[in-house]
C-alpha cells in the first residue's frame, strides 16, 4: 500500500515543513501564527511520516522516543519565562526587555523573552501531537489481544463490585 513514491515524498516533505513551522513561530510577532501553530505544523509533519512509515519505522528516528519529554521541557521553559521575573522582584510574567526598550536584534529578528515563551508553547504542542498520534498508532498493534483483555477486564469489574 505504501508505495515508494509516498515514502520518498514524505521524507522530502519533512524538512520543509519543519522550516515552515520555524518560520511561523519566529514571525509570529509580526504576522499570523505563533508557537502554537508552529507546533501543530511540525507535529503534522511527523504525523505524515507516521502514516507513511508506520510506528515501528518512526521509532528509529533519533530522539523520537524522547518527544513526550518535550511537553514537560516546553512547559518548564514557559514557566521559567513567567516566574523568573517574579523571583527577580518584578511582576509575574514581565517580559524582557521591558516595554518600550529596544531589543537585541539579528536582522529583523528580535530576541525577547516572549519568544522563549513561544518556544515553550511550540515544544508542548509538538510533543503533544507526536506523542498522542504515535501512542494511538502503537495501540493499534496491541488491538489483536483486546478480546482477551476484555475478558480480563470484565472479570476485574466483577471483583471491583465487591470491594467498593
Amino acid at each position: 500500500m505504501t508505495t515508494e513514491l509516498y515514502k520518498v515524498s514524505a521524507r522530502i516533505l519533512l524538512l520543509p515543513t519543519l522550516l515552515v513551522a520555524l518560520g511561523v513561530m519566529v514571525k509570529g510577532y509580526a504576522d499570523p501564527g505563533d508557537g502554537f501553530s508552529a507546533g501543530v505544523i511540525a507535529a503534522l509533519a511527523f504525523a505524515l511520516q507516521l502514516m507513511v512509515f508506520g510506528p515501528g519505522e518512526l521509532d528509529r528516528l533519533p530522539l523520537i522516543r524522547y518527544v513526550p519529554y518535550a511537553v514537560f521541557l516546553g512547559l518548564i521553559i514557559s514557566l521559567l519565562t513567567a516566574f523568573v521575573p517574579s523571583v527577580m522582584g518584578q511582576t509575574l510574567f514581565t517580559h524582557w526587555p521591558p516595554a518600550g526598550d529596544s531589543a537585541p536584534r539579528f536582522g529583523t529578528l528580535e530576541f525577547i523573552t516572549a519568544v522563549a515563551f513561544d518556544v515553550g508553547v511550540f515544544l508542548i504542542v509538538f510533543g503533544f501531537g507526536v506523542g498522542v498520534l504515535s501512542s494511538f498508532a502503537r495501540a493499534e498493534g496491541r488491538m489483536r489481544t483486546s478480546e482477551e483483555r476484555v475478558a480480563r477486564a470484565r472479570a476485574a469489574e466483577g471483583e471491583a463490585g465487591n470491594t467498593t
Binding site: Y69, F72, L75, I76, L79, F83, S86, L92
Partner: peptide, 19 residues
C-alpha cells in the same frame, strides 16, 4: 509573594509529572 502558591504548584506539578 502573591504568586508563590501558584508557582510552587505549577513547577512542582510539572516536575512530579515526569517522575
Amino acid at each position: 509573594m502573591m504568586e508563590l502558591p501558584l508557582g510552587i504548584l505549577w513547577f512542582g506539578a510539572v516536575i512530579v509529572a515526569m517522575l
